[in-house]
Design a protein around this nucleic acid. Structure first.
Lengths: 184, 184, 184, 184
DNA sequence: CATGAATGAGAATTCATTCAT
DNA sequence: TATGAATGAATTCTCATTCAT
C-alpha cells in the first residue's frame, strides 16, 4: 500500500499545513515557532523548508489554500430558490455559521496574523454583499418589507460572526425572526 | 516649566504606555519588540525596565489601567430616562461605538494578545447585558413590542463592534430603525 | 574518518564542557560569558544551547560529571595494605595531590561558583575522613604512636590542598616525616 | 552633634566600604551589582561614584585598605619572647586564626575576585615566612628538634587557614602538640 | 526524503556609569 | 551631598534558516 512519491509529498505537505494551522491558531503566528510546528507534525524543523520557503510562506499558504472564501462563494450560488425568503435566509446564515465553526482555527490565524487583516476584511465584505444582494432581491420581489438591506446584511453577518468567534453561537432562527417578525 | 521629579516620572510612565499601546496595536504584542516601543517613545530600551518589570508587565498594565470596562459601566448608568426607547437605545449604541473608536488601539491589543482573550469576552458580555436589560425594561413597560431581547442585544452589540473594528462603522439610527421600525 | 552523528554529538558535548571548564576556571563563573565559552570552543554561542539548557546548567554539569569525588573514593579503597603506614600514607597523599593537580581547573570553578561551596566542603570532608580512618587503624594496630588522628588528618589534607591550590605543591615525604619522624 | 563636612565624608566612605565588603563576600564581586551595594548601604547607586571611581576601584580599595597584611606583620613583631617555643607558636597561630575569623568576609572577596589571587598568595607567603623564621630561630637555639621548618610552617599555616575558611576551625593546641609532642 | 548540527541575527533584560537637579 | 532618570554596552538566550550527511 505504499504511496507513490508525489502522493507522499502531497500528503506530507497537507500534514504540515494541518500542524501549522493548529499551532498558529493556538499560539498566534508570531508566538509559534517553526520548531513548534515541526513537533506538532512529528518531524524536524529542517523538513518544513523542503515544502515551504519560510514560516511566512506557510502562513500565506494557509490563508490562500485553506481560506474559505471559495466555500463562501458556493453558498452564494445556492440562494436562488423558490422557498420563502426567511427560510432561505436562515439556511444561508446557518451554512455561514457552520462554515465559521469548521474554520475556527483559520479564523484565529486571521485574527492573529498582521498580514491577515486584509483577507479578513475581504471575507466579511463578501459575506455581507451576498446577503445584501439576496435581501434586495426579495424586497424588489415584494416578498420582504422595504428596508435598509445593506445595514441588515451587515447586522446579520456580524451577529453570526462575532458570536461564533466568541464561542457563544447565536440562534439563527431567533435572529431572523428578530429582523423579520411579520414574515415568520 | 520644569517638571518635578515625581511629575516627570508619572509623565514618562504614561508616555511609555502610550507608545506601547500604539506599537502593540500596530504590530501585535508578539510582533512588536521592546526596542520598537522604546523608539516610539524616543528613549532607550533599558529605560522601560525602570518603569515596568517586563514586556509582559507592560501589556498587563495596558489592559488593566487602560481598559475601558469602567467607561462601559458608566454608560449603563445613564440609561434610565424618560425619553423614547429607540432614542435612548440609539444614544447608548452611539456612545458605545464612540467608546470603541476611542479605544481602537486597545481593541487591537485585545485581539492580538493571547492573554487578552478573557477580558475581551468579559467586555462583550458586559455590553450585551447592558443593552439586554434596557430592552427588557422597555418591553415590560409596554413601550417596545415583545421580542427576544437577549438575541436583540447580542445582535446590536455585534453589529456595532464588528463594523467599528473593520473600519466600516455602521449607521446606528439605521440599525435601530431596522429592529424597531414601528417605533421610529 | 567521519564521525557518526551520535559520536559527533557526544564529542561536541565534551568539547564544550572542556572549553567551559577552562574559561570558568580562568575568569570565574560569573566573570566568564557564554560568548567566551563559545569562542574557546570555536563555535557560536547559540550552539551551547543545543547541548545545555543554560549557563548555570553547564556549571552544574561540570560539577556533577567532572567532579572527582568518585576518584577520591577509589583512593580510599586502596588503603588496606601490608606496607608500612608512613609509606601508605605518603602514597595516599601523593595520589590526592595528583588528583588535585589534575583537576586544578575544576578546583578553581569550585572556588568561584557560589553554588559550588557545598560540594567543596563535602569533598574536603571526604578526604579528611579517608585519611583519619587510616591513621586510626594503624594506631590501633600499634604501628603508629597514639595521637589525635582527626587533627592529623585535617592537617595533612589541608597542607596538601592549600599548597597545591596556591601553585606551591608541598613535598609529601617531608610532610609525612614531619608528623611521624620516628617511623621514617 | 553634627558631623563636620570631612568627618561626614570619611564616615560615608567607610560605610560604603562596609556595605561593599558584606555584599561582595556574599555574592562574589562579579555576582554583586553596584545597586546591591548601594541598597546594602541605604543609598542610591549614583552616590557610590562620588566616593569611588568605579566598582573595580571599590574592590581595590577594600583589598588595599582593609587588607590584613599590616596586622599580620604586627603579629610577627611580637614573636621575640622568652616563653617556650610551643607556647609562643600556639599564641601566634591563635592570633592568626582570630585574624582570619575577623576577616572572613575579606577572605571571601580574596577568593572570589579574579584580581585578588596575587594578594592572597602574598598573604599566605608572608604568614608562612613569619612562622618559618620563628621555628628556625628556636631550632637554632636548640629549643626545638631539628626539622624541616619551611614545610612545618606551610603545614601549620595551611591547617589553620583551610579549616577556618571551611568554617571548621582547628584546635590550635592539638595542632602544635601534633608536630611537637615532646615539647608539650 | 529526512535529520539535526550549526549559524547569525536579533530578542529581552541587566547593569555600570553619567548627569541634571 | 545625594538622588534617580537615563543611557549604552553587554549578557543570556531564542529562533528562522541552512546544509552536510
Amino acid at each position: 500500500m505504499a504511496r507513490s512519491r508525489s502522493e507522499q509529498a502531497a500528503w506530507r505537505r497537507e500534514q504540515l499545513l494541518d500542524a501549522a494551522l493548529r499551532v498558529f491558531a493556538d499560539k498566534g503566528v508570531d508566538g509559534a515557532t517553526v520548531k513548534d510546528v515541526a513537533q506538532a507534525a512529528g518531524v524536524t524543523p529542517g523538513l518544513l523548508y523542503r515544502y515551504f520557503d519560510s514560516k511566512e510562506a506557510m502562513v500565506e499558504t494557509l490563508l490562500s489554500e485553506r481560506g474559505f472564501l471559495p466555500r463562501l462563494r458556493e453558498l452564494g450560488e445556492l440562494r436562488h430558490d423558490d422557498r420563502p425568503a426567511t427560510e432561505v435566509l436562515t439556511g444561508l446564515l446557518e451554512a455561514f455559521d457552520r462554515l465559521l465553526a469548521d474554520n475556527a482555527e483559520l479564523m484565529a490565524v486571521f485574527f492573529s496574523a498582521a498580514q491577515a487583516r486584509a483577507p479578513l476584511a475581504g471575507l466579511v465584505g463578501q459575506g455581507q454583499r451576498l446577503i445584501g444582494d439576496f435581501l434586495a432581491e426579495r424586497v424588489a420581489a415584494g416578498e420582504l418589507r422595504p428596508h435598509d438591506t445593506a445595514t441588515a446584511a451587515r447586522t446579520l453577518f456580524a451577529a453570526v460572526a462575532v458570536n461564533r468567534r466568541l464561542g457563544t453561537p447565536i440562534d439563527v432562527s431567533a435572529l431572523v425572526g428578530l429582523l423579520f417578525p411579520e414574515e415568520g
